[in-house]
Write a protein that binds this DNA or RNA. Structure first.
Length: 656
DNA sequence: TGAATCGATGTTTTT
DNA sequence: CATCGATTCA
């Protein structure tokens, strides 16, 4: 057993208090860089060292990556070898359960969903899959309306699921479409992201015996990033903690940046209403950023009216002024940044310690081009995610369909991929046939029947394999049988895409130790719930690959500010600081502007040593040159903290 | 059936 | 600008 005093060493007073307050509700306001993750990991390790059974501890994190890191850090604190990353701990008895709300819901529903009619083999639909389902519903219902576009309907449905409005308040048409969508999901034995939360709440509410089991199992609950929980997550937390009341939530209202996704940061402010006996602890000492960066961030966030007042401080002194780079256009902005990076690299800064942040993914293009020109290795922590690539989704859809033969989205994907002569007409016939034998279904012509028979035979075989063998064996079988690599070789970017599916085989091998059907199930779950920060692979150009190999690893990370949440770097470039872009033109309501400001605050507080802010007077947006003013946020930073730079100030001191 | 081409059309952030 | 969908042609 680990000595508990060791777990308290090096913590400041409020941090210690948070670790020691193990019984009863606990609310931790943790400012940016105040050692929040440290507190949670030490707290969990402390509980275990004190003799609490590890399996009775639950920790909910914002991303799976954060979960993996937390797991490793706890293991290290307890002098245990870390578990292999990404294999969910629940399957190894005797470990804390650490994961996101969505994976928690997926797990509970997998175990107990049958009580509310959800089969063990259900499919998780990602955003793209559920949009496809909505398209099918709109077609079936013969909706002509231009108002109900698939994307808009998706967000309306999502809103309904998260907020459970009074049925009577809903528009008749919308209610009808909502029900049709739900019916289609049920028929496909599929759940969307919102269902993973909402159905879990439903299960625990309607089946008290099930709820009691989980309440009894997880006696110590931790929720990270509580300011970004939505209503369903709030209810789930309350349900799980109800019996023992040992619930510790950690968050910062100033870093709430997901209200557009249904998150309600007032959850953190109203915690004390539900748990009146809660101990409240504020962590305001910052260990990350230089005092100048903190002063800038504090000044900016102070402009928000809707916040719990607080002020970050640091014991450190010194630090560099924030730089503000004004460029004529986005290409020049990108080039200047790349040049500056070269100087820092010369001085010995590591590439992975210099992050480039932007408001929208579309901005990455110009930056990538400049980095390629400068020969700087980078990685895009965003954009087309690994599991969203077509070849990956296609191949995984075979497994999905084998596991869940009701999964219509998966079937539609694989029926003719690779091409096997089942085109649009035959697909329609086949779907009608599966839907049920009405009289008007045209009989299949003999060549059609042959093609269908061949496909069905393949799937019967695959089903058998999925139930008897591991995920990677099933994948390799299907790739073999469908000559998938030969098919990809004939497509554009064939080589890269073949690489990708080989990488998928590798990912599948991480589930080797699980028994046969679970192995495939887990892989599919990971694929659906993988987040931006978790991205397994990175988009990079061939030239970048060679640089990477020659300098012993390390890439400059490029990502949206949202994706940077929870991360920190020595140097942070915040690009595209223009009105209309950051703050975004679509977020102009007072509340939305405050969220944009919080987003800017998050960007600033990612940096340890240096912040470089950048804006362009003109940039291309949908093929058009658009001119804009510098972001209002720049003017909110006290001028004495800023040093204005022109692109020429970034001229290289070394030869390109 | 499936490849190819043309034209319209939408534009934030993501589990 | 890039993606998606519809239409056309082999």
């Amino acid at each position: 057993m680990t000595d508990t005093t060791k777990l308290l060493a090096g913590l400041n007073e409020p941090q210690k208090e948070a670790v020691l307050h193990t019984e009863g509700p606990l609310l931790i306001f943790a400012g940016a860089g105040s050692g929040k993750t440290r507190v949670i990991t030490h707290r969990v390790a402390y509980l275990i060292a004190k003799g609490v059974a590890p399996e009775s501890i639950l920790a909910v994190t914002f991303t799976n990556k954060a979960a993996g890191e937390m797991r490793e850090r706890i293991a290290k604190l307890l002098d245990d070898p870390p578990e292999p990353p990404l294999v969910v701990m629940a399957v190894h008895g005797g470990s804390p359960w650490i994961g996101t709300f969505h994976s928690l819901g997926a797990y509970i529903l997998r175990e107990d969903g049958r009580a509310i009619g959800i089969p063990r083999s259900y499919t998780i639909l990602d955003e793209d899959d559920s949009i496809k389902t909505i398209k099918r519903v709109l077609e079936q219902e013969g909706v002509e309306s231009t108002y109900y576009t698939p994307a808009r309907l998706k967000s309306l449905i999502s809103w309904i699921k998260n907020n459970e409005p009074d049925q009577a308040e809903l528009d008749e048409k919308l209610r009808h479409l909502f029900e049709a969508y739900e019916k289609e999901l049920a028929r496909s034995k599929s759940l969307d992201f919102d269902d993973l939360l909402q159905k879990t709440v439903l299960l625990l509410t309607n089946h008290p015996a099930v709820a009691e089991r989980y309440q009894h199992r997880w006696r110590y609950i931790h929720i990270d990033e509580y300011q970004d929980t939505n209503h369903a997550q709030y209810l789930l937390t309350r349900l799980l903690a109800h019996a023992h009341r040992n619930v510790a939530v950690v968050g910062d209202d100033d870093q709430a940046i997901y209200s557009w996704r249904g998150a309600d940061w007032r959850n953190i402010l109203s915690f004390q209403r539900d748990w009146p006996e809660a101990r409240v602890i504020a962590l305001e000492e910052n260990y990350r950023s230089s005092p100048l960066i903190l002063q800038a961030a504090n000044a900016v966030i102070a402009r928000n009216a809707a916040r719990h007042p607080k002020q970050l401080w640091t014991r450190r002194d010194g630090g560099a002024l924030l730089w503000y780079l004004i460029a004529d256009n986005s290409a020049e902005e990108a080039r200047a940044i790349a040049l500056h990076m070269l100087t820092l690299l010369e001085e010995g800064e590591k590439p992975e310690e210099m992050a480039i942040l932007f408001r929208t993914n579309a901005q990455s293009r110009a930056l990538e081009e400049a980095l390629i020109a400068a020969g700087i290795p980078y990685r895009l922590v965003s954009g087309t995610k690994f599991y969203e690539r077509k070849e990956i989704k296609d191949l995984l859809s075979y497994l999905r369909y084998a596991v869940n033969p009701s999964d219509r989205v998966a079937l539609a994907r694989i029926l003719n991929t690779p091409p096997r002569g089942i085109g649009k007409t035959l697909e329609v016939k086949y779907f009608a046939r599966l839907a049920g034998g009405q009289a008007h279904i045209a009989p299949l012509k003999s060549f059609e029947k042959m093609r269908i028979d061949r496909f069905e035979k393949l799937m019967t075989m695959l089903q058998k394999i999925v139930h008897e063998k591991k995920a990677h064996e099933a994948l390799e079988y299907i790739a073999q049988e469908t000559a998938f690599e030969t098919y990809l070789a004939g497509e554009k970017n064939g080589e890269e895409r073949i690489e990708n599916i080989r990488e998928l085989f590798g990912a599948a091998r991480r589930y080797e130790e699980l028994p046969a059907p679970d192995s495939t199930q887990k892989l599919l779950e990971e694929a659906a719930l993988m987040s931006e920060q978790d991205a397994l692979t990175d988009r990079r150009s061939p030239s970048v690959m060679s640089v990477r190999q020659s300098d012993g690893g390390g890439w400059v990370p490029l990502m949206t500010v949202h994706a940077a949440k929870g991360l920190e770097f020595n140097v942070v470039y915040v690009t595209g600081l223009e009105e209309g872009l950051f703050p975004h033109a679509l977020s102009q309501e007072p509340q939305e502007l405050e969220e944009e400001r919080r987003l800017f605050y998050v960007a600033l507080t990612r940096a340890r040593k240096q912040v470089i802010l950048a804006s362009s007077e003109a940039r291309f947006s949908r093929g058009e040159l658009v001119f804009s003013e510098p972001s209002r946020f720049l003017a909110e930073i006290p001028p004495h903290l800023l040093e204005i730079k022109a692109p020429q100030d970034f001229l290289p001191t070394i030869q390109l």
